[in-house]
């Protein structure tokens, strides 16, 4: 961080941020960059609706002061959806009936991507564990689990 400028990449583009370094990354993404895919569901790292990937790891963007991500790579659902992997996951969610109200789903999709990068052929238990920080109040999770398994199956070789 030089001269109070924070430089990081979001969905492949370099961004330079000069505001309050203590603002939450979630707010910078939503308010400054217009990336409203990450949602504010609880503001305390409990619900996972704000999940993004930071240097490839899934994290809660509501818990990250933007000043701490100098030089790091942020991927939001908007960026993921431009990739073959992202499209595969989104399509699987749609086909498996995993989407109801949808508010938690962008976060779920990011947790799914993080899982499949580490484990491209997960079993049901691994899927349930990987999304355990993403709360959903509509689906009871069964069809979300189906969607992740479907994405893994259809996307063989992508991850």
């Amino acid at each position: 961080m030089k001269d109070n400028k924070i430089e990081f990449r979001v969905n492949g583009e370099t961004r330079i941020y000069e505001g309050d370094p203590l603002r939450r990354l979630l707010d910078v993404l939503r308010e400054d960059l217009g990336l409203t895919g990450p949602k504010d569901g609880c503001g305390e790292g409990e619900c996972g609706a704000c999940s993004i990937l930071l240097d490839g790891e899934v994290v809660n963007s509501c818990l990250i002061p933007v000043g701490t991500i100098q030089g790091q790579e942020v991927l939001t659902v908007e960026g993921l959806n431009e990739t073959d992997q992202g499209k595969c996951i989104v399509e699987a969610y749609a086909d498996a009936g995993a989407v109801q109200c949808g508010f938690c789903i962008p976060g779920m999709v990011m947790a799914t991507e993080a899982l499949l990068r580490k484990n491209p052929s997960p079993d049901e238990a691994a899927v349930r564990k990987a999304i355990s920080g993403n709360l959903c109040r509509c689906t009871g999770y069964d069809q979300i689990v189906d969607a992740v398994l479907m994405a893994a199956d259809r996307g063989k070789g992508l991850w």
């Binding site: 939503r30 308010e31 217009g34 990336l35 409203t36 895919g37 990450p38 949602k39 504010d40 939001t76 659902v77 908007e78 959806n81 992202g86 996951i89 989104v90 399509e91 969610y93 749609a94 086909d95 009936g97 995993a98 989407v99 109200c101 949808g102 508010f103 789903i105 962008p106 999709v109």
Partner: peptide, 25 residues
């Protein structure tokens, strides 16, 4: 027989705008 929900892809891709997204500030 199931069809793909009309709102599923937009919601999963983060494109569906909820109120706080329509007016982020």
């Amino acid at each position: 027989r199931s069809v793909r929900r009309k709102d599923a892809v937009d919601k999963a891709a983060g494109k569906c705008m909820y109120l706080s997204d329509l007016y982020p500030s």
